[in-house]
C-alpha cells in the first residue's frame, strides 16, 4: 500500500484533516505521516518532510500532500534531502479533499500514479456542484456485465457510500464504470470517490454499472448488492431487494 505524507504549516490542521479523511476508510488505512509546523510555530520544515518520507520509504510509493505555498517549497527540497529511494510525488491537489480522496483510494492498494491522479482531481466534485453541469456524454453500449439499480438510501450516493464503492471495487481485478442514468452524468470509475460524488446521485436515481476485466461479474454483483441494500442506510423493514 502506498503511503501519504501530509505537509502543513499547522499540526492541528494536518491532524484534523487526516482524522476527517480516515473517517471514510473502513479497514486498514494507508501509512500516513505528518510533517507540520516548525519549532512550535506555523511553518514547514523540509528536513522533517524528508524524515517523514524516509519513515515510510519501504512502501511502494509515497504521495506528498501540502497546504499553502511554502509547504510546496519544503516538499520540493525534501525530495533532495530524503535518503529512501521509493518513488515520491508531490500533489497539486487540494488539502482537505485531496487527503480524503487519497486515503480512501490508497487503502484499496491502488498504485501511486492512480492515487496521485485522484488527489489532483479532488476538487472536481465541488466544482461540478458550483458550475453548470457539462453536457451529458453519448450513451455507452450495454454489454452482459451491465446492470442498473435504483438508489434507495435516503441520502443518495454521498461520501460514505462512495467510499464503500471504492473499497469494494478495489478488492477485485476489475474496472467498473458508474453512470447516473437519471441525470446522464458519467460514466466515472468506481475507484474514484470524487468521480462518484460528481455523479450527484440522489435517492430514486437509476445507477448503471459496467464491468470489465477478469473479476467484472463478481465486482459488479458486489456493487449492485451495496446499491440494493441501500448501503445499509435504509431503515429496517423498508429495504427493497
Amino acid at each position: 500500500m502506498i503511503g501519504l505524507v501530509i505537509v502543513s504549516h499547522s499540526p492541528r490542521l494536518a491532524e484534523a484533516a487526516v482524522e476527517l479523511g480516515l473517517k471514510m476508510v473502513h479497514g486498514s488505512p494507508p501509512p500516513i505521516r505528518i510533517a507540520a509546523g516548525v519549532d512550535g510555530h506555523f511553518g514547514t520544515d523540509a528536513a522533517a518532510v524528508a524524515a517523514a518520507i524516509d519513515e515510510i520509504g519501504e512502501e511502494p510509493g509515497v504521495l506528498v500532500i501540502t497546504d499553502l505555498g511554502s509547504a510546496v517549497l519544503s516538499a520540493g527540497l525534501a525530495l533532495e534531502l530524503r535518503e529512501s529511494s521509493t518513488e515520491v510525488l508531490v500533489s497539486a491537489g487540494p488539502f482537505v479533499e485531496g487527503i480524503t480522496a487519497g486515503v480512501v483510494l490508497a487503502a484499496t492498494g491502488a498504485p501511486l500514479e492512480e492515487v496521485a491522479r485522484e488527489v489532483a482531481g479532488a476538487l472536481d466534485a465541488k466544482r461540478d456542484q458550483l458550475e453548470p453541469m457539462p453536457d451529458a456524454p453519448p450513451p455507452t453500449s450495454w454489454d452482459p456485465l451491465s446492470v442498473d439499480e435504483v438508489l434507495i438510501n435516503p441520502e443518495g450516493l454521498h461520501t460514505r457510500p462512495a467510499a464503500m464503492f471504492v473499497q469494494t471495487v478495489g478488492g477485485y481485478d476489475a474496472l467498473v464504470d458508474v453512470t447516473n442514468l437519471t441525470t446522464g452524468i458519467g460514466p466515472v470509475t468506481a475507484k474514484s470517490m470524487i468521480g462518484l460524488l460528481s455523479l450527484g446521485a440522489k435517492q430514486g436515481h437509476r445507477i448503471k454499472l459496467d464491468g470489465h476485466g477478469p473479476d467484472a461479474a463478481t465486482a459488479v454483483s458486489a456493487l449492485r448488492g451495496l446499491l440494493a441494500d441501500g448501503f445499509g442506510e435504509v431503515p429496517s423493514g423498508s429495504a427493497a431487494i
Partner: peptide, 13 residues
Amino acid sequence: VSTVGGASGSLYG
C-alpha cells in the same frame, strides 16, 4: 531549513 520555517527557510537553506 529546520528552524526558519516557511519559504525563507527552504530558500535560504
